[in-house]
Amino acid sequence: MDPHLLRQLNAARRDRRAAIMLTDLGDGRNRLVMKGDPVAGDLGAAIGKAFLSVRSSVVEADGRRFFLNVHVPSPRMVIIGAVHISQALAPMAQMAGFDVKVIDPRTAFATDERFSGVDLVADWPEDALKERPLDAFTALVAVTHDPKIDDWPLTTALHAGAFYVGALGSRKTHAKRVERFTEAGLGPDQIARIAAPIGLDIGAQSPAEIAVAILAQVIAALRKPADLSEQPSAR
């Protein structure tokens, strides 16, 4: 593998850009193709397909065998609330390959000491998400219990088609949330996309256990999107 191309590939991955590392299995030569780069012929068509399917595979093109290793940005998880659950959830989600950001305007909660090694923003979600808005590749996890902080990112995530939207709170808290969101003009189908009570029903009690329940539900939404509505919720 070409060391120079490895560094370029890793730089692209850090910048959240999609890339394919191409290896000619005949002579071992590499080529790094960024999404959008024009590549001619059969190989170009195979590269286009690989970017769409996000599947790494061997392809035969122009009389040669190539391995196409597809690298796409990892899914994001935006956690609203620098609370105890988030202290467990953020590192767990990072280990599972998510690009994690924790947002909380309450500076007593959002301290580096509590969130070492985590991208933490002590600001309102409206401001913290300005540069990189929520998108379909984002899971939004709202765990402050406070409508002043949670409501805006929740409705914004629904509008943005985030692949997972979950909110902490009892059934009563959620019923009030549904009322507010209905008044704000969201349809029942949209509101039903909110996982509430948040997390899979595994009887989780401690903050770390609840974090496992949430992370498992987020992974299910990512890998088995059609099944989400059938999954039992807990919290």
Partner: peptide
């Protein structure tokens, strides 16, 4: 980021980052 005792960092889990 600085390593946290008892915690495996993302970069330690990513073989291509380790290789670099």
């Amino acid at each position: 980021t600085a390593p946290v005792p008892g915690q495996i960092s993302e970069d330690q889990l990513d073989p291509l980052m380790v290789a670099e």
